[in-house]
């Protein structure tokens, strides 16, 4: 066991993957000499050489498109998209090629590609540096979409993603890069499947579903609620496509109340999908309609406004009050 930041745990995961499989290559903007703008690839080019850790031209479609060609050649590329808002030039390759090649060719072509994307806000950044574009990808059949919330998951899930024969979009919660935690870098990869959700805190009253950067926020909310005698069961989805609905359903059948929170905008987001699916599966176990606490349906705002955009402990607890039928901000609201 070692104490690592989430970023260092990712670096360690990449290092393991590069050591374990000579077909693994890392590519992206500034990932080589600089070690990435968040230093996640720090030291890798020095140790594995520029053939395996490649600085690429600034062209996201080019990065993903050439990675597809490397897959045809038997490689297992791990590409870094520098920031969430920079992925869109590669959107075409991801949606029209990466997601579909295996289906299109009836299994002849595998695309064991991992696309790492630092995502989410809360770091006071300029436009295109704080977004949560996961729903674009969870809507795309053929992609797997995962995210981590702690150093151990960062390490293990990244290795699982790289080992996966399907394309995986791996979202990294950039504001948690510096969160420290114990990491067992020798933990077996097949202990907990990548697509399995994790129960973070046990609770009997409300199921609080979240992922990535808001897991820590949700835990804070659960601790605060405990002081009021309310038991919140926090679920860390980890996998956003597929979603481990069975685990969510089991929890909701127990608590009867569901709150979903994510940074991404509400409309058409994961919260909608989970609320709908859980309503379909266990409507009669719900005591109240599910509630969502999300970013507003606006473009990601300027840094001085992001505290209003981003869900926080108080907004989550307000929704918890709502599903419990307690006094909350919408009590008596006539909008």
């Amino acid at each position: 066991m070692a104490t690592l930041t989430l970023a260092a745990a990712l670096t360690s995961g990449l290092r393991h993957a590069l050591e374990d499989d000579p077909k693994v290559v890392v590519m992206g903007e500034d990932v080589g000499r600089l070690g990435g703008v968040f230093r996640v690839t720090d030291g890798l080019q020095k140790d594995f050489g520029p053939d395996r850790v490649m600085d690429t031209p600034l062209a996201e479609s080019g990065i993903v498109g050439t990675a597809v060609g490397l897959c045809y050649r038997g490689y297992r590329p791990v590409v870094e998209i520098q920031f969430d808002g920079f992925v869109f030039p590669a959107f075409d390759q991801l949606v029209t090629q990466v997601a579909k090649l295996h289906y299109r060719t009836r299994g002849a072509v595998r695309v064991p590609l991992t696309v790492r994307i630092p995502y989410g806000g809360g770091i006071g950044a300029v436009e295109h540096h704080s977004e949560s574009p996961e729903a674009y990808f969870t809507h795309t059949s053929g992609l797997r979409v995962v995210t981590c919330s702690n150093p151990q998951d960062a390490h293990t899930m990244l290795r699982q993603a790289i080992a996966c024969d399907d394309p995986v979009v791996f979202f990294e919660p950039k504001r948690r890069y510096w969160t420290k935690g114990e990491v067992d870098t020798d933990a077996p990869l097949d202990d907990v499947p990548m697509e399995q959700a994790r129960v973070v805190t046990r609770g009997d009253d409300v199921t609080l579903v979240t992922y990535g950067p808001l897991v820590a926020t949700a835990v804070d909310a659960a601790l605060a609620a405990r002081e009021d005698g309310i038991g919140i069961e926090v679920l860390d989805l980890r996998s956003l496509s597929p979603v481990d609905l069975a685990t969510v359903e089991e929890s909701v059948r127990h608590t009867g109340r569901l709150v979903i929170t994510h940074e991404a905008q509400q409309h058409g987001g994961l919260g909608a999908e989970i609320a709908a699916s859980i309503t379909e599966r266990c409507f009669f176990h719900l005591e109240q309609p599910p509630a969502r606490v999300t970013g507003f349906d606006v473009p990601y705002p300027a840094a001085k406004l992001e505290e209003h955009f981003l869900p926080d402990v108080d907004r989550i607890l307000d929704a918890v009050d709502r599903v419990l039928g307690r006094q909350n901000s919408l009590t008596g609201w006539k909008g």
């Binding site: 498109g65 060609g69 490397l70 038997g74 002849a108």
Partner: peptide
């Protein structure tokens, strides 16, 4: 099967395959 004949099946998205070819060549 692309690997049986050494030819990927066509991409209909115009130009997308040129990047695949380039990546394949980088692999070579």
């Amino acid at each position: 099967d692309p690997f049986a004949v050494g030819m990927a099946t066509p991409t209909i998205i115009i130009g997308a395959q040129t990047l695949h070819a380039t990546g394949y060549a980088m692999g070579c």
